[in-house]
């Protein structure tokens, strides 16, 4: 059986909120290392990969592998019934028909309990190769969100160019063009504002802004976001969570002329 207790419901609320517009029905794969999810959007252009390590829960118990097929719309409805600070416990039997969610208020003695019916989801699982990326940019997640939102007003696509000069986000649209240039930046007092660019070779890639704007819904999960790029491979956008847990998005590039 599965029993996983989260100190704050807020974490799961934010994760589900960040991915629910990209993917609808997903398997939450539970085993003794934690709860993982991998799902592609309908167009097979973007992929969500979530890992909530067992250390992110206290306690965490999962005796055998259980796949919980959950509709994220349904999960959102139930998670709305939890307060952000509630303690959340997920429970399921070994061959479950439902997943059980218990929300406990630390301040009052209120306990609420919900069951969500599970679905059989035959999901395509992709093997993501280990990649040594040519450029890794770590930057404030709010800054990345602002860039994507600002440029999406002008264009459908953004080119991300990374060189030893820094990183440049460029777009061209019907009304004109825009570009934002960032350099490495260290703020001793506010390290969450740091921009770090780790480059082994220059990179230039084009991506759909619609998806990037969608990924940025995860900005509330982490002060910083990591963008990993290599020419002609999917972009990795990573929001690191506590205890080595993470929410990652992969986005296939736009290629050729």
């Amino acid at each position: 059986m599965l029993e996983a207790r989260l100190e704050q419901a807020n974490l799961l609320k934010k994760v589900v909120d960040a991915i629910k517009d990209l993917v609808q029905d997903c398997n939450f794969d539970c085993n003794d290392s934690g709860i993982a999810l991998q799902a592609m959007d309908n167009s097979h252009v973007a992929l969500v990969s979530m890992m909530l390590k067992s250390e992110s829960f206290s306690p965490f118990r999962c005796d055998r592998n259980i796949a919980l097929g959950i509709n994220l719309g349904s999960l959102t409805k139930v998670l709305r019934c939890a307060q952000n600070e509630d303690i959340l416990t997920l429970k399921a039997e070994d061959a479950p028909d439902v997943v059980n969610l218990v929300f406990e208020s630390a301040e009052t003695d209120r306990i609420s309990e919900y069951d969500i019916k599970l679905m059989d989801i035959d999901q395509e699982h992709l093997g993501i190769p280990e990649t040594e990326y040519a450029a890794t940019i770590t930057m404030p997640s709010a800054e990345f969100q602002r860039i994507c939102r600002d440029l999406s007003a002008l264009s459908e696509s953004v080119s991300i160019e990374c060189s030893k000069e820094g990183v440049k986000f460029n777009c061209q649209g019907d009304i004109g063009s825009g570009s934002i240039h960032l350099r490495s930046h260290t703020n001793v007092d506010k390290p969450e504002l740091n921009v770090e660019i780790d480059l082994t070779e220059p990179v230039s890639l084009t991506f759909s802004l619609k998806y990037l704007v969608n990924f940025c819904k995860a900005s509330g999960l982490s002060n910083q976001v990591k963008l990993c790029l290599s020419n002609e491979v999917p972009l990795l956008v990573e929001y690191a969570l506590s205890n080595n847990s993470y929410l990652r998005f992969y986005l296939a590039p736009k290629i050729g002329d």
Partner: peptide
């Protein structure tokens, strides 16, 4: 204009 690729081109099926 460049064309949107899909992930299957880069990631293998498991």
């Amino acid at each position: 204009a460049p064309k949107q690729a899909t992930l299957g081109k880069f990631f293998g099926n498991l």
